[in-house]
Amino acid sequence: MDSKTVKKYLGEYRKINEEKKYSIDLDRLQQYKKEIISGIKQYPYISRTTLREIFKKQYIFLYRHDKEWLMENLPPKQKKHLFTKTVNWTNRDNVYVREIKLLHKQLLERQQPIRITVSTIGRELGILANLQHHLDKLPNTKSLLEEITEDIQEYQLRRCYKIINRMLLEKVAITLWKVQRNAGIKSVCFQKIKPLLELYKEKIINRSK
């Protein structure tokens, strides 16, 4: 086979692959657009930040390949909700509960743990003003926040549990001094949670046998 024939078939092969890739990208583009629109309809008060966290791969792909469409279809930037007589607080309460549950799941799954507080949730969802000033009008939201928010010690424990789980998964010897070092917790604070970590360590090691 001469060089011209080789170049001809190589060119055709590349063209087919490019067309195939382009077709797949178009299909993915349309699918991701549908998923973004569906998410916005399902959670009408969702913030841009939360939408980006929930639909991370879709958001990144659309940002790279059709940024104009993405910017036009994102939820409007949220402003502070001001109290007016026309606000339906019952409806807003129910919406907040759904969005906070969704965000809470996302926060727990983050690679880099972040302490779950009212301020964290309020800033992420763009509803901090209402959580700070009108929580008495949002009883279900208030109850949920009391259940899921963390004090410093609870946050430290969750960070350590995550590290212990990772060490077990990676089959690394679980020593608490390494856990403390990786979590970046001062010794005086670590001593307070050490007995709970010992119990947790024994529990997951026994469970893995």
Rank of each mutant, 00 (worst) to 15 (best):
residue 65 H to Y: 14
residue 67 K to A: 06
residue 70 L to M: 13
residue 62 L to R: 05
residue 98 R to T: 11
residue 75 P to T: 13
residue 76 P to H: 04
residue 95 V to G: 00
residue 70 L to S: 11
residue 105 K to R: 14
residue 106 Q to N: 08
residue 103 L to V: 03
residue 80 K to T: 13
residue 95 V to L: 03
residue 115 R to M: 12
residue 80 K to L: 09
residue 95 V to F: 01
residue 106 Q to A: 12
residue 109 E to R: 10
residue 61 F to Y: 15
residue 119 S to W: 09
residue 113 P to F: 06
residue 83 F to Q: 14
residue 114 I to H: 00
residue 75 P to E: 08
residue 68 E to K: 12
residue 71 M to C: 05
residue 85 K to W: 12
residue 74 L to S: 02
residue 120 T to Y: 03
residue 66 D to W: 11
residue 81 H to N: 04
residue 89 W to P: 03
residue 117 T to F: 10
residue 76 P to C: 00
residue 76 P to F: 03
residue 90 T to I: 11
residue 87 V to S: 07
residue 81 H to V: 14
residue 76 P to W: 01
residue 74 L to T: 01
residue 115 R to V: 08
residue 66 D to P: 14
residue 79 K to I: 06
residue 117 T to Y: 07
residue 119 S to Q: 13
residue 89 W to C: 02
residue 92 R to K: 09
residue 116 I to V: 13
residue 108 L to P: 01
residue 99 E to F: 01
residue 68 E to C: 04
residue 82 L to R: 13
residue 77 K to Q: 07
residue 87 V to R: 11
residue 108 L to Y: 00
residue 72 E to I: 07
residue 96 Y to A: 01
residue 93 D to E: 07
residue 117 T to E: 03
residue 72 E to T: 10
residue 78 Q to P: 03
residue 101 K to L: 14
residue 111 Q to C: 01
residue 66 D to C: 13
residue 98 R to N: 13
